Computed example of a mutant assay.
Amino acid sequence: MVITRQRQEITAASNEEADQLLNAVVEDLQQLARREGRYGILVTKTGPGRFTVELSEDVPFGVTEETTG
């Protein structure tokens, strides 16, 4: 898992692992988003078992959106 302040990349070997990692990362970024008060969270599936989770100005504050890249 690559971690920066506003973006995290996740690689998981199973659906269960992906769910656990995504939930943890989204919770962490939700806390940061609340402090910033202006970003939503964008989850992008970039490949099998691979995801990017990031704060995004394109997503309304308080919302988490999912997409594929």
Rank of each mutant, 00 (worst) to 15 (best):
L32Y: 11
S14E: 07
E57H: 10
V63G: 03
F61K: 06
E65P: 01
V25P: 00
T4F: 11
Q8W: 12
I41G: 06
T44W: 07
E66H: 15
T46A: 12
N15T: 12
T64Q: 06
F51I: 10
A33H: 04
E36W: 06
E66Y: 14
T64D: 05
E27Y: 05
T11A: 13
T64Y: 04
E57M: 05
D28N: 14
I3V: 15
G62S: 09
A33R: 03
A33Y: 08
N23H: 04
R35D: 15
D58I: 01
E16D: 15
R38I: 08
Q30T: 09
P48T: 09
N15S: 10
S14V: 01
E17C: 09
G69K: 10
V26E: 03
L42M: 12
V53Y: 09
R35V: 15
E17K: 05
T11C: 08
V53M: 10
D19A: 14
A24F: 02
A12G: 03
V26D: 01
Q20T: 13
G69Y: 07
V25K: 04
I10Y: 02
V26R: 02
A13V: 07
R7A: 08
S56V: 05
R5N: 09
L55C: 08
I10P: 05
E66V: 11
R34F: 13
T11V: 15
L21C: 08
Q31D: 14
D28Q: 15
S56N: 01
L29D: 04
L55F: 07
A33I: 11
E36G: 04
I3Y: 05
T11R: 14
L32F: 14
L55Y: 11
Q30F: 06
G62E: 05
L22W: 00
M1Q: 13
L21H: 01
L22I: 15
L55R: 11
G49A: 09
Q6N: 14
V63M: 11
K45P: 00
G40I: 09
S56D: 02
E17M: 03
G69F: 12
T52F: 06
G37T: 08
Q31K: 10
Q8T: 15
G40N: 01
V53S: 06
V43A: 10
E65G: 03
T68E: 13
A12M: 06
R7T: 13
D19Y: 05
E27T: 08
M1D: 10
G37R: 04
Y39R: 10
E57Q: 07
V26L: 00
V25L: 02
